[in-house]
C-alpha cells in the first residue's frame, strides 16, 4: 500500500510538464498500469484525488489503462495473457517463456482543456 507516494510522484511529473498557469486546465492524466505493477487502481485514484484537492489540479483525474500480464514462449513463439501470473505457455505449456508486459507503471499522457474554450 504505497499508492499515496505513487500519487505524489505522478503529481511531480505533471508539474514538470505543465506550467503553473496551465495546471487548472489539466483534465486527465492517463496511465498505463500493469496487472502486476503492485498497484490497487481504486486506491491510486483515491490518493490522487486526496492530494490534488485544493490545488490547481483539483478538477483533474487519473485514467488508468490496465495492461495485461503477457508472456512470450521461447519454444513456439506464442504470446498469451496470464491472469494468475503463471508463466507457462497457453499453447504448448512450456515454461521457457519471457514476460513481455504487465508490470508497467507509467504516465502515458496528459489531457488539457482548450484554454479559449474554457473562457467561453
Amino acid at each position: 500500500m504505497h499508492e499515496l507516494s505513487i500519487a505524489e510522484s505522478i503529481v511531480d511529473i505533471v508539474h514538470q510538464y505543465v506550467a503553473q498557469e496551465q495546471r487548472h486546465a489539466v483534465r486527465s492524466v492517463r496511465m498505463n498500469v500493469g496487472t502486476f505493477s503492485g498497484i490497487v487502481p481504486d486506491s491510486l485514484e483515491f490518493s490522487y484525488q486526496a492530494i490534488t484537492a485544493g490545488t490547481d489540479l483539483e478538477h483533474s483525474f487519473l485514467t488508468l489503462e490496465r495492461i495485461p500480464f503477457m508472456i512470450r514462449c521461447r519454444e513456439c513463439g506464442q504470446e498469451s495473457v496470464s491472469e494468475d501470473g503463471i508463466v507457462a505457455c497457453a499453447l504448448c505449456n512450456s515454461s521457457n517463456t519471457e514476460i513481455i508486459s504487465g508490470r508497467e507503471l507509467q504516465v502515458k499522457d496528459i489531457e488539457l482543456e482548450d484554454m479559449q474554450q474554457e473562457q467561453t
Binding site: 510522484s9 511529473i13 507503471l105 499522457d109 496528459i110 489531457e111 488539457l112 482543456e113 482548450d114
Partner: peptide
C-alpha cells in the same frame, strides 16, 4: 482538448 505525450515511468526517480 490537447494531449501532451509524456511516457515516463512513475518510479523513474527510484
Amino acid at each position: 482538448m490537447s494531449v501532451l505525450t509524456i511516457e515516463r515511468k512513475v518510479l523513474e526517480k527510484n
